[in-house]
Amino acid sequence: MASRLTNEATDAAPDLLQATGRHRSVFFPRRRTTPRTARNFVVATLTEWSETSRLDDMRLCTSELVTNAVLHGAPVGQLVLVRIESLDGQLRIEVHDSGGNTPTQRVPEESAADGRGLLIVSTTADSWGVKERTGPGKCVWAAFNRDKSGATSLPPRTTGPQGDTA
């Protein structure tokens, strides 16, 4: 039996987490409706944080990354974790799943009906990548630089790190 996905988002990219940022994470079941639900979560969170300059780009990348996790990453019965981070220099969307496959960008045939997800992410986001997780699976992320989004940096926090607010 496959291991369950745990909330190990902070282990996925510890070098990119900074104490001055905000984050929010939600677990979603592996279902056909999960990409839509995850997009709604991202839009609601970024709107609440007043981070809407590149909302359409972030919504599109969320859709592609979550669709990949549902179709190719998360085994049946497992969960997908979507994490949004607002860091000093960028906004970052991470999608974690417990599957063993590492996604790769490809160039599909013109007539192909699918296979363009990571190509779309690579041309829409300022950067993207795949990180191993502690435990099963991987984290696929897309980042959006603040200098291109027009968003302002967060002021330094004077309190300790916040937990997930989902």
Rank of each mutant, 00 (worst) to 15 (best):
I84K: 03
I84G: 00
I84N: 04
E85F: 09
E85Y: 10
E85C: 09
S86Y: 10
S86V: 10
S86P: 07
L87I: 15
L87M: 15
L87K: 07
L87S: 13
D88W: 12
D88A: 15
D88N: 13
G89A: 13
G89M: 12
Q90N: 11
Q90A: 08
Q90R: 09
L91K: 01
L91D: 01
L91H: 03
L91R: 03
R92Y: 01
R92N: 06
I93M: 00
I93Q: 01
I93P: 01
I93K: 01
I93W: 00
V95C: 07
H96D: 10
H96N: 12
D97G: 07
S98G: 14
S98V: 06
S98H: 07
S98L: 06
S98Y: 02
G99L: 06
G99I: 05
G99C: 10
G99V: 04
G100R: 09
G100C: 03
G100Q: 08
N101M: 15
N101D: 14
N101V: 14
N101Q: 15
T102E: 08
P103W: 01
P103K: 02
P103H: 00
T104F: 13
T104Q: 11
T104R: 13
Q105E: 11
Q105F: 02
Q105A: 10
Q105K: 14
R106W: 05
V107Q: 09
V107G: 03
P108V: 00
P108W: 04
E109K: 14
E110S: 07
E110L: 11
S111E: 12
S111R: 11
A112S: 15
A112R: 11
A112E: 13
D114P: 00
D114I: 14
D114G: 14
G115V: 08
R116M: 15
R116W: 12
G117Q: 06
L118N: 03
L118I: 02
L119M: 15
I120N: 02
I120T: 11
V121W: 01
V121P: 00
S122N: 13
S122H: 12
S122V: 10
S122E: 10
T123E: 15
T124E: 15
T124M: 14
T124R: 11
T124W: 09
T124Y: 09
A125Q: 07
A125M: 12
A125N: 09
D126Y: 01
D126Q: 05
S127R: 13
S127D: 13
S127E: 03
S127H: 12
W128P: 03
G129Q: 07
G129I: 11
G129F: 06
G129P: 08
G129W: 07
V130W: 00
V130C: 04
V130A: 00
V130S: 00
K131S: 10
K131Y: 09
E132R: 09
E132Q: 06
R133Q: 14
T134E: 10
T134D: 11
T134L: 13
T134C: 11
T134N: 13
G135K: 08
G135N: 08
G137M: 05
G137P: 03
G137L: 05
G137F: 02
K138D: 03
K138T: 05
C139S: 07
V140N: 03
V140D: 01
V140K: 02
V140F: 02
W141P: 01
A142Q: 04
A142L: 05
A143E: 06
A143I: 07
A143D: 04
F144C: 06
F144I: 07
F144G: 06
N145S: 04
N145P: 00
N145G: 04
R146D: 06
R146N: 05
D147P: 12
D147M: 15
D147H: 14
